[in-house]
Design a protein around this nucleic acid. Sequence first.
RNA 1: GGCUGAGUGGCAGAGUGGCCAUGCACCGGAUUGCAAAUCCGUUUACCUCGGUUCGACUCCGGGCUCAGCCUCCA
Length: 466
Amino acid sequence: MLHLHNTLTRTKEPFETLKDGHVGLYVCGITVYDVCHVGHGRVMIVYDVLFRHLQSMGLAVNYVRNITDVDDKIIKRAAENNVSPEALSQRFIDEMHADERALNVLPPTHEPRATQTIKGMVNMITRLIDSEHAYAADNGDVFYSVSSFAEYGKLSGRKLDELRSGERVAIDEHKRDPMDFVLWKSAKPGEPSWESPWGQGRPGWHIECSAMSMELLGEEFDIHGGGMDLEFPHHENEIAQSEALTGGRFARYWMHNGLVRIKDEKMSKSLNNFLTIKEVLKDYTGEEVRTFILGSHYRSPLNYMSESLDSARAVLRRFYTALRDYAIDTESDSAPLSQVYVDRFTAAMNDDLNTPEALAVMHELAGALNKSTDSLAGQELANTLRHLGRHLGILEQDADTILKAAGKGVSSESQLSNEAIDALIEERQRARANKDFKRSDEIRDQLVELGIVLEDTGGITTWRRN
RNA sequence: GGCUGAGUGGCAGAGUGGCCAUGCACCGGAUUGCAAAUCCGUUUACCUCGGUUCGACUCCGGGCUCAGCCUCCA
């Protein structure tokens, strides 16, 4: 039985779907005004693993992750680059998809864009005004009235009067209450805008998620996820809008992943301390990044350190080394698996997606595989390791290829071709046969200099790149 | 100031009221011509002060420190 930590209750709760066999999952995606950084990568990977896990439970998952393609920063950035906002956002959507492919992230079922859901938002705002949860100011802005929603603050545990006293933003004169937030912004000349009952304008940020989730998942759905920094005010506001409108519940389970940090500080655009996914991919493979992210629990903060990425590399090297002598069983869906490990792995995943524990199970499995002397039992363990890896979106590559692949971040001109390496190994074998260990060791040392490690096992010499 | 959450061995990182996390690193051993990989073994821990308990790193309370949010942010 899957348990998920629900931010609404601050406890782990048994996960029960609203509709038998189906899950509606909504995740707040990215505002496409720049390339993605590692923090975005964590969101992609964490909810991708949730997606995979729910599917593995036999559930039909409708996974919706939105794209915010209209916003102040997009407009500003587009103007700076002398391109249209549409062209700018399309460019970064393409970049984002490339990052996801590199990280082996499955495409969500739907990726709605804010600009394609304007009608739904206008409709929703109209109904909010009709029911007096929102009001139009004389400048064309429309605001949500937080005091009209008695449960405001239930997600983040805040109370309106506490928030007001801590208010540190200049109060917008058009607002009736400083905590009211904008649903619709009147457009300035030259900005992208849409017609509305309140004049030309564009949507505020929060309303888009309510509109898109409602359109694709219905008024009430199972899981809503996103980064912890979205808990307040964004998700709080989503609840206020949606539940005021429907009178019922919005999302049943709220999940928030921890933030990626650098030197104990949040990685973010505004602090300018971020590393883009593309930068990291220069030095590490997508699989290594994935393993690094899954090495800590999704709700914990995660410090970005090259040592941790190196550690992820070592983890994969250990797994692939164990798998090296076993073919990938292409019919692994039907191949027998070692149930003990599958059960322990599943139990870890069912405990609020405890991926570090799941990886620990895989390490013990790899140890058993290394110890196995029986090839049939070994194949079963290898199949199991592959199977569990796939569950996490890793260990899908050919082991020998991975181990021989040139390490990322190593300059290519210092690389020896595989043929040249094989030739040197042959020469070394002849030397060893003649007990010319001096020459034999020379060759090995020479290869070590180039990052190539030889392994003499069972009379056969294999090699890998370090 | 308010609201969340966190503090585990050299590093990373799970977890539990009394017994092994796991990986990397280190040390010893097996194996090897020497290595590598692998296996076996050892060592190192639970921020602090109180309380509950036969017994707490684990539960409760105070304190300290750190992070996130309260402005855009995944």
